[in-house]
Amino acid sequence: MTRILFSDKLDNCVAKWRSAGLTVIGPVQEEAISRYAAVEKGTDLSFGTVLPDRSLKELFFPQTEPMTSYTIKKNEIETTDFTPPQGKRIIFGTRACDASGLAIDDPLFGWDYKDEFWFQRRNESVIVTIACTKSDDFCMCTSLKLAPDSTKGADVLLRPIVKNKGWIVEELTERGREAFAIISEYLLESPEPAIPTVIVPEKFNLDTCVAWLQNPENFDSKFWKEISMRCIGCASCTYLCPTCHCFDIQDEGDTYSGIRRKNWDSCSFALFTMHTSGHNPRSTQSARWRQRIMHKFNYFPGKFSVNSCSGCGRCSRQCPVDMGITETLQEISKL
């Protein structure tokens, strides 16, 4: 027997979680875009999209975040540190690629310095992944050796049952068990079969690509210029990416008072590596695109033993000039 959460009980569950003090967050279809957002009712959640336009990362690593405010007086400097908002939350209905993205970034944010903004949110969030039963042309989790029902980064895995009447519940961590204990009265033993997870075709051979990237001779390959000729150098791929994590620290204000903020930054921008002298070690867009690919599939795994890509495909899906990681790695596999 398996335990089922029927979708007509979702409103009750959301109410229950909320009364237990959890903020309930999930995929929401807004007028213009879809994203993960806080909801008050289960019916506000939307499970129809392949995956939300915006990734899960922004709930852990927002596009702008205050760190410290400062006031400089004649003989003293006053500072006040901001802390990330406190409060437990349950993120119901993440996609496996988005949840994996969090797990991929954990070692990065905890490597030489433990980023309290990231980890406080991580520790206070229960991640409930729903296995995918549909995909689109851009999904590529399987090419990254992940899967539409990957449990990476998740505390609970749900598998949709036929007619989308609900989900089979698989609790994976203690945190997940605790969160689902709150709604245990709505979990029913039932022999409902799960809808098979979608088959996402493999688009490139990752090992072949990684071997090519690791060969130092290919750093100066003509390939980089050719593949990135049409790149316009915007940051939509990096900002929608569930694993891209670069940020800049900026002081906003004047000499006497202001706020120090942590803002998303992108290797796509020329300014990202611009030196004060005016020299730019990554002076061309091809060098910047090479950096993005090398970082994800060579440098990051070299340091943390995991690729910095979970195969969501947002980079290709949203690219104004129809580029992306998929095409680049497909072309590398052919070299």
Partner: peptide, 23 residues
């Protein structure tokens, strides 16, 4: 909703400034 990815700027033929005001 803006995330300042500057895709609008980069896609625009008129945004050719070598150094944009935001940079």
């Amino acid at each position: 909703r803006c995330i300042k990815c500057y895709a609008c700027r980069q896609a625009c033929p008129m945004c050719y400034c070598r150094r944009c005001i935001v940079d």
